[in-house]
Design a protein around this nucleic acid. Structure first.
Lengths: 240, 240
DNA sequence: TGCCGGACTTGCGCGAGCGCAAATCACCTC
DNA sequence: GAGGTGATTTGCGCTCGCGCAAGTCCGGCA
């Protein structure tokens, strides 16, 4: 993989990429291996060369949620380097993955030399922040079914590839993953996905989901959140 | 207000602050006035001089959630300048507020001259991203009551001031605000807050909440989310 | 001082979706 | 191919908390 394909190092001169390659550490992780643990001090900047990673945050009470999925080219675990915080979540490899990383000192040195890296970081964080804000709204205002549809669509848009049968999500997803990503339970996620498979909205085989009817899912995702009741029709009627 | 009190312009040389002051626009907004609207193109970088602002995101279906509260010193509405997106949310003044702002061109020029501004932006975004991730986990794994407690505690920590009667939240909050910030309904928020007032966990007068028993609220906030049922006691027993 | 509109409270009914449990299925190892 | 581990499915009961609606409180304005 060319380093300029990483979002972190976009539009840098060749000399910079060469130096970065020299300072780079490459590691391989097997399925379900842990790249770093929540609570550890942050020491390196990570980027994903190949595979996929899920970032899981666990609360004091044991409840955990998938904060984000990382796909090839994305940076992760890097923000706490700038805010002197500890790592706020744990990174699991969803599948066999190749992880690239740089030491904090090397990264800071490169940012001093090439401020464009800092601007890349801002752009990445900005997009992610917008994404998380949308998820907050989603979780706060939508019902379980809509949230699941929204989560699937978001993943399909960001990590999907168009195939003959529809848009395939390039991340191996268990039912439990879908549940923890959309803020519902394993059972509800299972029931819902199974129903959608039956209806032909999507297909799943060996841990991979494929969106077959994007518009159908979008309709469910935007189903007016907390008011899907017949009794509310009178209000929805005069709004148009 | 000294400009170096703004999180965006921390630790800049006096010369930089002087230039920034020259390029600054100052506006006053009355209660419930709109600073900018969701969907508008981003043209300026904002910071709050005094007062408080709520950032509200509305979905296509009409459901809206409070994404964030802004207090004096914080920047807002600035990220889309870097990602070339439109503004993802609307900013309402919670009370009379003084808003400072800079044009995109001026901001970019200053960042070129003083890269420390870019690092400040990264630090701010990093903290906010961590905050939003925690909220996502909260919304996904906690019950309404715990979410409300968590929301109140978060606001008290970030925008609170210690007083004789407890820690007072420096933002005027309606019940509806609490509801939209914690992902529940006006009714549940009202009931819950009223109950807590009766128990003495918190107090409210003329739109301002005061946390009287932080540990009590924290206990509710961390009440193991989806399993507060008697039937689960057998499990909770051998953990604690 | 009296009027008015918006915010807050509260009783009621109910259904979405959670926790539980048990059966089934897919996949990996040996 | 056999055994085992973990993922998935699915029926059941039950509660949380939402929608509704009516009443109350409070602050602003004339």
């Amino acid at each position: 993989m060319n380093l300029n394909e990483l979002e972190l190092f976009r539009s840098l001169p060749a000399a910079a990429l060469e130096r970065l390659r020299g300072a780079m550490r490459v590691e391989a992780f097997v399925r379900e291996a842990i790249v770093f643990r929540q609570g550890d001090p942050a020491t390196r900047a990570y980027a994903l060369g190949a595979g996929s990673i899920r970032i899981v945050q666990t609360g004091r009470d044991g409840g955990s949620a998938i904060v984000r999925f990382i796909t090839a080219g994305e940076m992760f675990g890097t923000v706490p380097l700038f805010t002197r915080q500890r790592l706020p979540a744990t990174a699991f490899a969803c599948e066999e993955s190749r992880v690239l990383s740089w030491s904090e000192a090397d990264l800071r040195r490169m940012i001093d030399l090439y401020p464009a890296i800092a601007m890349n970081v801002i752009a990445v964080l900005g997009v992610r922040l917008a994404d998380m804000q949308e998820r907050v709204r989603d979780l706060a205002t939508h019902r379980a079914q809509s949230r699941i549809a929204g989560a699937v669509l978001r993943l399909a848009a960001r990590a999907g590839a168009d195939t003959a049968g529809g848009r395939a999500i390039g991340i191996p997803l268990r039912r439990k993953d879908v549940a923890e990503f959309s803020g519902t339970t394993l059972h509800t996620a299972s029931r819902t996905l199974a129903a959608w498979e039956k209806t032909g909205l999507l297909a799943s085989s060996s841990g991979h989901l494929t969106v077959r009817d994007r518009d159908g899912l979008r309709r469910i995702a935007e189903e007016s959140g907390p008011l899907p009741w017949p009794a509310c029709r009178k209000f929805r009627g005069d709004e148009g």
